[in-house]
Design a protein around this nucleic acid. Structure first.
Length: 109
DNA sequence: CATATGACACTAT
DNA sequence: AATAGTGCCATAT
């Protein structure tokens, strides 16, 4: 069952979608980076929850948000699908982990 | 207000 | 390097 109200404007979730949509093709960002970027360092877990709702499906490239250890993390449609999308973006995934992870990370300013 | 949940992160083993 | 335990945060009930 999914919860997370997607109607709450200007809320934590909205900030997450906003930042996530800025990730360029072929790059990835960690949940923690998103959290820090929206002024809530440590809320990495909450970021994942917000993305899980994924209201703006294809609009927000939520598949470009991964874990700090190089693993791609979870996905609504399954990690396998997520890996496929990343590969399509030019980010190779092998055994659930990103190849050349450090090089693919996109840093917010 | 208290408890539970989860697409995480960090530390110790 | 891989696993397990603990801490964190925003929502839901």
């Amino acid at each position: 069952m999914k919860y997370f109200t997607q109607n709450t404007s200007n809320s934590f979730a909205d900030l997450v979608y906003e930042k996530t949509s800025l990730i360029p093709r072929g790059r990835v960002v960690t949940y923690g980076q998103i959290a820090k970027a929206i002024g809530r360092p440590g809320a990495s877990r909450a970021v994942g929850n917000a993305l899980n709702c994924n209201p703006y499906a294809p609009v927000v490239p939520c598949h470009r948000v991964v874990k700090t250890d190089g693993k791609i993390g979870g996905f609504v449609s399954g990690s396998k699908v997520k890996a496929g999308l990343l590969r399509r973006d030019g980010v190779k995934v092998r055994d659930g982990k990103i190849v050349d992870f450090e090089k693919k990370i996109f840093h917010f300013n």
